[in-house]
Design a protein around this nucleic acid. Structure first.
Lengths: 171, 171
DNA sequence: TCATGAATGCAACATTATAACATCGAAGAT
DNA sequence: ATCTTCGATGTTATAATGTTGCATTCATGA
């Protein structure tokens, strides 16, 4: 069966051009906020950048540490408000099974996130697969259940870590 | 499209015979533990019962309160150890998006849980749909990703709550 | 310039989960 | 029957994650 409409971007490779990811994320964020009339303040922009440090989900308190290291005073509400804003704009997703947050690769098109998350390197890839979403919707319809939000997270081992050998520790 | 092999039990109805659910859960638990050689102690049995108070996922500290009301002294590790044991035996599932725990309806057959969770009444229904699981596995294969664990949780509104009217508060 | 409301700073607190170590008790070995 | 052993439980403290409430600042439009 065809891969249907999932994103054309594959699992983030070790040596990819991450600066391009960051540039794209910032450009998309600016556009999304402009269209929605929301204010992408310096703080919010800064937090978004910190989240985009890598493709691995980051915890709220890790972000707090990073903010502090950047010289900004920050208490938990600071970061949680920024996270609320960013996720409200669809710029980031929360990974429920890790209590962590990751940048969205396609915020211009609203969608529910579907994630493959590597236990070894921490990297998360966003799937956004229409067939999965469709099947889940169909099952909800079967059950007469009104679907509001889907959480789909697969934990496992990414292509890169599989190549580097089998015996690594979890994280 | 056919419903494939998902469980024959539908969304738990308001007036169903819950005593039967409890009996079945206890019987299954006894059998599972007997087969695995694990010890279903009084404490663990008691916690399992408390979880089966309803089909709504319960938080660890709610369980602690219930245990205390039952006259048993209990600190957090008590409950978390029981939860670890029960989920290790496949007798309960953790709902990541709620930080809560719910009884498994078919512990004899190991599986990954897929849940429909009602925001209004809290009730969770376990799907265990082979088509969804198959599609997810296929996407992982496409991405050369080694799947270890799937978390699939749909938040929404259950048939019963839909019938009682549209304007209820979340929970 | 002023009024307004959103954004941020800040202190305290609530919730969820784990670590470390002591004690108890069931089950088999002697 | 008693001992030994190891898993299960008790207990205290603490870590990790998230929220409430209120004061202050700042951008924006009247």
């Amino acid at each position: 069966m065809a891969r249907s409409t999932h994103t054309d971007r594959d699992f983030p490779q070790a040596g990819h051009d991450h600066a391009a990811c960051i540039d794209e994320a910032l450009a998309a964020a600016a556009e999304v906020c402009r269209l929605s009339g929301a204010r992408l303040t310096e703080l919010r922009r800064q937090v978004l950048l910190l989240i985009w440090d890598s493709h691995a989900p980051v915890g709220a308190y890790q972000l707090l540490d990073k903010l502090s290291r950047d010289g900004r005073t920050a208490a938990p509400p600071t970061i949680y408000r920024a996270l609320d804003f960013l996720s409200g704009q669809g710029l980031i997703h929360r990974i429920e099974s890790l209590n962590a947050y990751v940048g969205c690769r396609d915020p211009r098109r609203p969608h529910v996130g579907q994630f493959l998350i590597c236990r070894e390197c921490g990297t998360a890839a966003e799937l956004e697969d229409a067939e999965i979403a469709g099947t889940v919707r169909a099952r909800c319809a079967d059950a007469d259940f009104e679907m509001h939000h889907l959480t789909l997270e697969v934990l496992g081992r990414c292509p890169g870590c599989r190549r580097t050998g089998p015996g690594q520790a979890d994280r």
